[in-house]
Amino acid sequence: MKDIEQILREGKPELPDEGAFLIETNARLSKVEGIKQEVDGERRRGRRALLIALAAGLCVGILLTLLVLFYPIPSFTENLSALAKAASALQSHKAFLFIPVAGCAIALSLLLMNKKGEVL
């Protein structure tokens, strides 16, 4: 008996050539042309929204960081130890503040863009 691999390699099935297959394919593609354009439009709008959200988030983050760096809040929380500790920690790590702020701004922008997309 032949080896199973030999049987498999020799057993490749051949289908009869059906010219009608491509004709039907073309007909179906014509029917879904409208859907495709809608899907492509949606993808372009999503990409634009993402870019706007990224730019907005970065701008807001940079602005707020500059604000914190050049206009620090005076410490009036000396009597409240927990709040004083938090303020002191923020003061010492203020250079990294823009990261979470930018992240929140980006997330908010994306959410707002998505909502706008749903409405449209």
Partner: peptide
Amino acid sequence: SLCGDAALADDIAQEALTRAYVTSG
């Protein structure tokens, strides 16, 4: 070869091509 039926295979192939075209972007 998966279906064992050429007619069914062509139906599935047409469905696949339609899906592929819509998402080809």
